[in-house]
Design a protein around this nucleic acid. Structure first.
Lengths: 192, 192
DNA sequence: GGTTATCCATACTGCATCGTATGGAAAGTG
DNA sequence: CACTTTCCATACGATGCAGTATGGATAACC
């Protein structure tokens, strides 16, 4: 995601620079904020530059989203390799996810634009992968298929909801309260 | 929410007609879809009508949202009066919420526009009320204050996330699977 | 039935943004 | 050092939507 590169005169830009900048403003201000001229101003150039690298705004979005999807998939695979005990794997995943991460800001922004034809299938694929992973972990932890699926749904829904609510600081918590919340979260969903 | 009033030549319109139409398209296509000319077409009139009833698009949004907030508050108060046993009250609320309702479509749309200055405080107020209610119910059900708050956070986050995910039919479930999910949901969060 | 208040149509301005056309500057290449 | 490729600036057209100005139509009222 590079550093917060605002108005760096820098050198000349590559397509990857535009994609990363797009993901930054996406995380900060949503999909709608990924506008050509606005991005150009942020990067210290003009539209002329943009339309050399990309045919259209959608092409940039697509490229940026593919980039994010790959990184998200990689994170998940890393989580799979993390621990051998499925319970511990779940706990570790929850802890990882709960201590935020730029990737979750992107996800929170994306889910708000779930109607757009470019976003919807992406969210579907990503959620599918994540749900399958969590379901499998619960299954390996001893729950039967149906119970595991439901715990996974509950856990993933809670994650999605929390990411949304976090933006209004709604479950108003300080750091310690948050830690206790995560502990309870784990305790409720992963008994024993 | 009136009937699905599309392109009814009808008679002349009132401010309330615009507000209800605004809530309809809000639920269907999000806050961004609440556009003056588009709404006018939907109602079979032109912008001339709109700007007689409202000074600006924001004024319409504000009025429509106040309308929705009042109805949401009333629903919650009805849920409070429903059952005397707090556990049963929670179960009933979950069942009510899980069998959808036009009001939840509005909420799902609103949460996507949580950045807008008109929406954010509204979501804050509504979530505050709902969380307080659920927290209180868990508390009355025997959990201490901290545990009750965390169960409420988990339950409400799961609700928010589910409402979002439901739009992509992500937790791909048929009717029976859904009922089992709700049963498990209740069983996990409300033990005994 | 005439007058007034209510409601709406038409035509316009202003602004943001996507996309195009084209010429120019800087970096690489022989 | 000439020349080509790569990258960018400027200027323009087109579209969509908010908001204004103004006159006309219809219903309500005395």
């Amino acid at each position: 995601m590079a550093a917060l590169s605002k108005l760096e005169p820098k050198t000349r830009l590559s397509a990857a620079d535009w994609e990363e900048a797009a993901l930054e403003v996406l995380a900060e201000n949503g999909v709608g904020a990924v506008a050509v001229e606005s991005l150009a101003r942020r990067l210290g150039v003009t539209k002329g530059s943009f339309y050399w690298h990309f045919a259209t705004r959608e092409a940039l979005l697509q490229a940026a989203l593919e980039r994010w999807e790959r990184s998200d998939e990689a994170e998940l695979e890393a989580a799979i390799a993390a621990a051998s005990d499925p319970r511990e794997r779940l706990r570790e995943l929850i802890r990882q996810v709960s201590h935020k991460h730029p990737s979750h800001a992107v996800f929170a922004a994306l889910i708000k634009s779930i109607d757009q034809p470019l976003i919807r299938p992406l969210i579907e694929r990503v959620s599918q992968r994540r749900l399958a992973f969590v379901t499998e972990a619960f299954h390996q932890a001893g729950f039967d298929a149906a119970a595991a699926a439901n715990r996974a749904r509950l856990a993933y829904s809670a994650y999605v909801g929390f990411v949304q609510l976090a933006q209004i600081g709604q479950p108003r918590m300080n750091h310690d309260e948050f830690e206790v919340y995560i502990r309870d979260f784990i305790g409720i969903l992963i008994p024993q």
